[in-house]
Amino acid sequence: MLKKSFIALLMVSGLCLGLFLWLKSLIPQPDQDFSQTQPGELRYLKQKPSQSRGKVLVVVTSSGIMGASGKATGYELTELARPYYVFLANGFGVDIASPQGGQPPVVIDRDDLGPFDYAFLNDPQAQYKVNYSIPIAQASAKDYQAIFFVGGKGTMFDFPNNTSIQVLVRDFYRSGKVIGAVCHGPAALVHVRMETGELLVAGRRISAFTNEEELFLIPDAEQHLPFLLEDRLRAQGAIMQPGPAYLEQVSVDGQLITGQNPWSTWQTVERMVEAMGYTPVPRQVTPAEYTVELLLAYEQGGFAQAAQKLQQLNSDQGTEIDRRLLAMHGVVAAMRWELGKTLDLLRLLRRSKK
């Protein structure tokens, strides 16, 4: 009996190893090193309008510990770096603020970084602004055209009850200025009340990090976070507009523009530029964005529609799929025991290999 169990274990291990090696063969190793990218190398920034359009205030968390868990947290680098350059490219100056001021804690996932993110890390001016961030209590809405709240789990601890943030948001809203937030950034909005006593988010269409996304990554999140963001927004009367997990979803409700997760960052900020009355300057779509388009096609129409979308992407000059991201979604589906979806995504992954 023991011998049979041992043989079965070896067979299962062999199958898992074979699947891993096959999956690895479909995911190319990065052939470009972006770690030395300089801001001057971003052609996107060369389109910057000659005349300034004013300034945008970008707000990051000062909280570096995730509650009683003791786990490190902070703001998400990608959710700061990409908006920073989108605003600059579209003619806006950028100031960076945080609840405490000074150098805020940052979360850096090297696997997610692209040219914009490394350029931000190598940009002396950007680094000065973030390392010497303005204390939020010293910021005034009259100096800015818009305010944008960067995500990161730290925001759950120091955004919701910060009275300076609440005053700023109320002043921006009352002045008809644009308010944006992405991922956990909408935590800044949950307790904001207008002069009438009405909650800002009540009856407003909102996208933010969902319970599904939160609890998949951290099953015991309710023990470590003050609240689940989706639950609190719903309780405050927000009309939540969740999209598929870990894919792009943006809600626009007048001057209030919110994105669900990191993959919604580009569109959230470009919608803010539109809300300020400008057409966003052209930007080369990233491989991750093309992959998100493909995955959204799958969510909307199954394998057939996704395969058609992939064929179109493969035939278009200059498009590139992030096969690592596609594989990650396949792994997530497998972890959820969505075996049909797992197989479909693996088929798409195989077809995407040019």
Rank of each mutant, 00 (worst) to 15 (best):
G277R: 11
E299W: 00
A288R: 12
R283L: 07
L296C: 11
Q300C: 04
M276D: 03
E274I: 11
E293V: 00
Y278K: 09
A288P: 07
Y298D: 12
G302L: 14
R283G: 01
E293Q: 10
E289W: 00
M272D: 07
T286Q: 08
L294Y: 12
P280Y: 06
G302K: 14
G302W: 15
Y278C: 03
M272P: 08
T291I: 03
G277H: 11
T286M: 05
L294F: 09
P280F: 07
G301W: 09
A275C: 09
Y278E: 05
T279N: 09
V281H: 12
V281T: 15
L296A: 07
G301S: 13
V292Y: 03
Q284W: 00
Y278W: 15
A288S: 15
Q284F: 00
M272W: 07
A288M: 14
R283M: 10
P287H: 06
Y290W: 15
L295Y: 03
Q284V: 01
T286E: 02
L295N: 05
Q300A: 15
M272A: 08
A288H: 10
T279E: 15
Y290G: 02
P282E: 12
L296E: 08
Y290L: 04
Q284P: 06
R283F: 05
A288E: 14
P282F: 00
M272V: 05
V285H: 04
R283P: 03
E289K: 00
Q300P: 04
M276Q: 03
L295V: 05
V273R: 08
Y290I: 02
T286F: 00
E289F: 02
T279P: 04
G277V: 11
A288D: 14
M276W: 01
V292E: 03
L295T: 09
V273E: 11
G277C: 12
V292A: 06
P280V: 05
V281R: 15
V285E: 09
L296M: 12
T286C: 00
V292D: 10
T279L: 14
L295M: 11
V273Q: 08
E299I: 01
V273K: 10
E293S: 13
P282K: 01
A297I: 01
P287W: 01
R283Y: 04
P282N: 04
